[in-house]
């Protein structure tokens, strides 16, 4: 329903008013922003060190002692063969952690929308002559902006950490835009799904239940934390279709390599196309679901 009465409803005006309100609330509440920074730090530092696969290479195998230079070689080989040539495990991990943060923030970002319904704010705006689409898209955008901000923070933290993210040679502005473009497509698609979900449920409890049920399989069937090479074949198949895999593979390719070879460019292009198609599909599905959820009951 894009028209409001005789005149064209001001979709962009409504959208910006609603989005502005949500982001104003967010910025004004440091309790909501600050933990994001620490979450990013913990994820990177904790996963980066405790999961670090190169840290578990033994220097002594059945009495055979590796010299420290041999040990370094083994570690480098692991990184280059299994982890796409990343200089450090954190270099591999960063894109995955950003995806993880996107997923969880997107999923729980819906709580604000459920609160809007519970506190009656939603009814107040529903009684106004605004297009229902602006309510849905403002939900999508506010969630996306909040989560992407944390994504940028995570990226910065990873770079600043000692032995952290070592960007590939020649990584420039275009690569940055490319990497975060892929992540933003994922963020948009997930935001559409979770916004529609949040507009449809009546209570925070049911939102949290569904989110918990949905997010873990989504994350752990992806290559966010580990490459697919060692996955069993069924998992590999699932992982291949998982948009999180596509987004973190695309972002990771750029972060690790900087300049892409032509075959890498093709692989990046396919991932991006997949993500764009997924984003459009989720946008439409979410829109239809949200329209239903916002109709008078």
């Amino acid at each position: 329903m894009l028209t409001s009465g005789g005149r064209q409803a001001d979709l962009l005006g409504d959208l910006s008013a609603l989005t502005r309100r949500a982001l104003l609330k967010w910025i004004r509440n440091p309790a909501a922003v600050l933990p994001g920074f620490f979450t990013a730090l913990f994820y990177i530092a904790l996963f980066g060190n405790s999961f670090n696969p190169t840290g578990i290479v033994p220097s002594n195998i059945n009495g055979f002692q590796l010299t420290s230079s041999e040990l370094e070689e083994v570690k480098t080989a692991i990184l280059s063969q299994t982890f796409g040539g990343a200089a450090t495990y954190i270099s591999y991990l960063t894109a995955g952690i950003i995806c993880l943060i996107l997923v969880f923030n997107m999923a729980f970002g819906g709580i604000d929308l459920v609160l809007d319904r519970q506190l009656g704010f939603l009814n107040t705006i529903l009684a106004a002559p605004i297009s229902r689409a602006s309510i849905y898209f403002s939900g999508v955008i506010q969630n996306m902006v909040k989560a992407m901000a944390l994504g940028f923070i995570t990226f910065a933290v990873a770079i600043l950490l000692p032995n952290g993210l070592m960007l590939g040679k020649g990584f420039g502005v275009v690569d940055f835009v490319g990497a975060f473009g892929a992540l933003a497509l994922l963020a948009f698609a997930l935001s559409c799904v979770f916004t529609a979900l949040a507009l449809s449920v009546k209570s925070i409890d049911s939102l949290v239940a569904i989110v918990n049920f949905a997010t873990f399989p989504l994350v752990f069937t992806s290559t966010a934390l580990f490459p697919a090479a060692d996955f069993p074949s069924w998992l590999k198949a699932i992982s291949n279709f998982n948009p999180i895999t596509k987004a973190c593979n695309a972002a990771r390719l750029l972060m690790i390599n900087g300049m892409l070879s032509s075959s890498q460019q093709i692989s990046f292009g396919w991932d991006l196309a997949y993500l764009a198609a997924f984003a459009v599909a989720m946008g439409v599905v979410g829109y239809l679901a949200a329209n239903k959820a916002l109709a008078p009951r």
Partner: peptide, 8 residues
Amino acid sequence: MLLGKLHH
């Protein structure tokens, strides 16, 4: 102001 905007 928000309500005003939403009522155009």
